[in-house]
């Protein structure tokens, strides 16, 4: 199971990478594998205000749709527009090319997990 050490996670399988006041959000390798081929991503609008633990995006495969929660609160400053044409980037590169959106952080979710705690969550669901 690929769970990078430099990220934090939610138990609903989102990852967040914090750099200064910017947070990049995506879904974990485990999550993309569970979903199967991603066919569509509904992204937030730039400028939208995210509150932590609120649905901000939806990742769809053929038979499922997953709500994506924001691990942070703040303003959405960028979305990964390339996912519109190539949603498979989420399957192929969940931690790099498959990122979903970036937020200018004003607060963190109280539920953030470190990699080893998230590992336990994912293992229990596998």
């Amino acid at each position: 199971m690929n769970i990078p050490q430099n990220l934090q996670y939610l138990k609903s399988h989102e990852w967040v990478h914090l750099e200064g006041d910017t947070a990049t959000v995506g879904i974990s390798d485990f999550a993309q594998e569970q979903l199967g081929d991603v066919v569509y991503v509904e992204l937030p609008k730039v400028g939208q205000i995210a509150s932590s633990d609120e649905t901000l995006a939806v990742v769809e495969s053929v038979k499922t749709a997953s709500d994506i929660y924001s691990p942070v609160s703040g303003e959405v400053i960028e979305v990964n527009a390339s996912l519109e044409g190539s949603p498979e980037q989420i399957n192929e590169s969940p931690y790099e090319l498959g990122w979903l959106f970036k937020v200018r952080v004003t607060g963190l979710s109280s539920e953030l997990l470190d990699p080893s705690s998230y590992h336990l969550v994912a293992e229990a669901e596998a």
Partner: peptide, 13 residues
């Protein structure tokens, strides 16, 4: 197709 819009997958949403 595009079934992720529908009740049997999205239920309340």
């Amino acid at each position: 197709t595009l079934q992720a819009r529908e009740q049997h997958i999205r239920r309340a949403k």
